[in-house]
Each structure stands twice: as C-alpha cells, then as structure tokens.
Design a binder for these strands. Structure first.
Lengths: 162, 162
DNA sequence: TATTGTTATACTCTATAACTATA
DNA sequence: TATAGTTATAGAGTATAACAATA
C-alpha cells in the first residue's frame, strides 16, 4: 500500500507528503532501474565520487545500516561501477573507489534525479515553488528535524547455538 | 533506514518530502500507540464512522490490500473498538461497526493527528504555510498524481500442493 | 576494549495464491 | 463466472547478533 487517506479536520499534511514522496520514489526507482541502479546505489556512487570515503562513512551519509551497505557495495562491484580498496590509514576499512564506468553512470543517474525534481517543481507557479522549498527546508531544519523514537518492540535476542 | 541524502544539483525535493513525511509518520505511530492504535486502525475507524462500510470499501479508501484489512479489523475487534456485522445487502460482505468505545478512541485519535499537523504547520509563516499546502495539493492532483508502475519482479506462482 | 566489515539469520511487512461462501 | 472475506505463506527489505581482523 502507499498512503493513508484519513478523514480530515486539519489539512492532511501527512497524506500530502506521503503521497508526493511515494510517487517521486517510484519514479526514481523506475528510471534508475533503466540504467541498472537502485536509489541506494546512486546515493553511494555520488558520495563516493566526492571524496575518498569508507563504507562506514558512506553508510552514515546515506543513513543506511552497515549491513545494507555491504549488499549495496556488492551490487556496485558486481556491476563494475565501484571497487573496494584497502585504506592506507586503517587496515580494517575499505575505501569505495568508483570506476570510470561508475562515474559515467553516476552523472547519468544524477541527471535522472535532477530531471525528476525539476519536472515536478516546474509545474508550480514560481512563488509557490519557492515557498514550498522554503517551507520544507524550514520544517526539516526545525520542527520536523528528528523522528520520534520508535516504540520498537525490541527484538528478542537470537537463540544461542549450543 | 529513513531517507537518502544524495548530492544535490536541483533542489532535493525527494529528500525534503521523504524526511518530513517520515518524521510525521514516526510521531503519528508513537502518539497513536499511546492509545493502542496504529495509523491503519485510526484510518479504518474514522472511515467506518462516517457511514456503513464493508471491509472491501474501507480497504479501498485506505489504499490497503484486503488481506491487510483483515489483520487491521482483527486488531480493532480484539481491542473492542469495532465489530464485524453481516451485511443485509450481501451475505458475503461484513460491515465494520464501530463500538461506543471505538468512537471515543476515534475522536481522540483524530485530535492527535490534527494536533501533529497543526503543530507542524503553525511553525511556518502564514504565507509559506498556505503556499506549501497549495503546492502539495497541486502536485497531488497533477504531476505527482499517480505512481510509476513498479517494475515489480513479478512474483512466481506458488508451488501447488500435490 | 572498541570498531570495520562480513556472514548468517530473524523479524516485519505486505502481497499472492488458494479456498469458502455467496452473488 | 466473479466477488467478499479468510488463511497460509512467499518474498522483499532490513536489522540484529556474532565473528574475524585490526585499532
């Protein structure tokens, strides 16, 4: 399912944000899939291109778990878009080096992402577009900066092998 | 994980929408959990209160699968907030009747949801708030109305029992 | 002792299939 | 034949635990 559609008393900001972000996400997935990427692969490629970064740093930037990072880097290596290289600073760490092909793909994926955003934004009147971005940035930096801590039904410890 | 943080060329509308909707969702979950509801239970309660509706109609309204609806109604019944009643029109269908307790809880949950939306919106300057809502509605009704069809890796048919 | 990256795996979520009873 | 609701379960996604190498 995609989003709730509750009856409304105050303007249903949740519905508006859920719906728009969901639709954008499906477009990103669909268009990035055409060049063999997921959103996460795109995210890692772009950040790895900016400067030398380890898996842990890239995971932090993309807000991914380190185990999710492993499968993402596996996919990038398998596609020939990046390679794990030993760090000279820390022999535990791996630098993610983007290949030439990876850099080409990254510039195409960035165009795709920018295009999706631009096409959506240009359908809005100039004033509303600017106000929308200003308002969203305001919320992200302020009242909606941090998630409520999830009342996660703390997962039970795994059964020990014996 | 919560959201991507890709490098930016065009304004990163996806990040802004993902982040804000995610934070709102965590608040809703957390605050609704305090009165024993999930977002879906709230959604069903509210729509079931508006008029006599069957599970299928409520599933349609909340954009849920009918199987997801089953577990949601199970939870509502178990909590004593709603009951399945046979429809007089169609003996296959079940009307979801909200109990008195369910109606009380629904009005509290609607207050919770409205409060979360209002508190977020009131942090914005009047003009930006109106433009934000106008812009999001514009996108929902227009350019971002419908999701790209997911290149769903069509699930294989289940193995027949023999 | 703590951290990086890895593997293995457990949990949640949601959708598919198959079924029963109606229509 | 098609639809409402149910059950069982498959599959995707992702997080937890434990581990090896290194700090």
């Amino acid at each position: 399912m995609t989003a709730m559609t509750p009856a409304r008393t105050a303007p249903d900001l949740s519905y508006l944000l859920d719906h728009t972000s969901h639709v954008l996400r499906t477009r990103m997935s669909a268009e990035l899939a055409e060049i063999g990427l997921t959103a996460r692969m795109h995210c890692v490629l772009v950040h790895a291109l900016e400067e030398e970064r380890t898996q842990a740093q890239l995971a932090e930037l993309g807000d991914m778990d380190k185990t999710t990072m492993v499968v993402t880097v596996d996919a990038l290596e398998k596609a020939g878009l990046a390679e794990r290289q030993p760090s000279s600073q820390d022999r535990r760490a791996r630098i993610i080096a983007v290949t030439e092909e990876g850099a080409r793909i990254a510039s195409r994926s960035q165009e795709i992402v920018d295009g999706i955003h631009r096409r959506a934004l240009t359908t809005l009147p100039d004033g509303d577009r600017e106000a929308l971005l200003r308002a969203l940035n305001h919320l992200v930096d302020g009242h909606l900066a941090t998630p409520a801590e999830s009342p996660r039904p703390t997962r039970r410890a795994r059964q020990r092998e014996q």
